[in-house]
Amino acid sequence: MAIVASGPGTPSTSPVGKGVGPLLRGWRERRRVSQLELASRADSSARHISFIETGRSRPSEEMVLRLAEHLDVPVRERNALLLAAGYAPHYPETPLDDPSMEALRQGVERLIQGYEPYPALVVDATYTVLAANRGIAMLLDGIPESLLAPPLNAMRLTLHPEGLAPRIRNHREWRDHLLAQMERQIALHRCEPLRALYEEVAAYPVGDPDPTEEAANEPTAYFALPMRIEHEGRILSFTSSISTFNTPMDVTVAELAIETFLPADPATAKYFQSLVS
Results as ranks from 00 to 15, higher is better:
V73E: 01
E53P: 09
A46S: 15
R234G: 02
E145L: 05
F245M: 12
P263M: 02
L275I: 08
L179C: 07
A215S: 14
Y198D: 03
M101G: 08
R47A: 12
F51M: 08
P74Y: 00
V129R: 01
L83N: 05
Y87H: 14
P8D: 12
G17A: 12
M63E: 08
T128Y: 00
I112N: 03
I136A: 05
A267L: 10
L23I: 09
V73N: 08
A85W: 01
P209I: 06
P166Y: 02
E77F: 00
P266I: 01
R156S: 09
V122T: 06
L225Q: 14
L130S: 04
R172K: 14
L104K: 01
A103M: 10
N79I: 04
Y198T: 03
I49E: 02
H231R: 12
G21V: 01
S40C: 02
A131P: 13
M155C: 13
S44T: 15
E102H: 12
R134A: 15
A215E: 15
E192N: 04
R78C: 13
I136L: 04
A131K: 07
V64D: 02
S14N: 03
D250C: 07
M101C: 12
L275T: 11
R31P: 06
V122E: 04
A165P: 10
T54S: 15
V4T: 13
L262M: 13
G19C: 10
Y271M: 13
M182T: 08
R32T: 10
T244E: 09
S146W: 00
E37W: 00
R169M: 08
H48N: 12
T220M: 11
S100R: 13
Y127N: 09
D210Y: 06
E255M: 10
F51T: 00
S14M: 10
V122Q: 04
A202S: 15
D97N: 15
V75P: 12
V253H: 05
K270Y: 00
L188M: 12
P15G: 01
Y198C: 06
G135P: 08
M182S: 04
S6N: 15
P119T: 06
D176K: 14
R28F: 03
V251F: 01
E259M: 04
N170P: 11
T13K: 01
P166L: 05
G17R: 11
H160F: 02
A257C: 13
L194T: 09
E230A: 15
R184H: 11
R195L: 13
Y222E: 07
H189D: 11
T128A: 04
H48R: 09
A42M: 02
P219E: 03
E145D: 13
R78Y: 02
P226S: 04
A132H: 11
H48Y: 12
E102D: 14
G163K: 00
R32G: 06
P150K: 06
V201M: 04
F51P: 07
G86M: 08
E62D: 11
A39Q: 05
D141A: 15
Y222L: 06
A221V: 12
S6Q: 09
V253Q: 07
F272N: 08
F238N: 04
S237R: 01
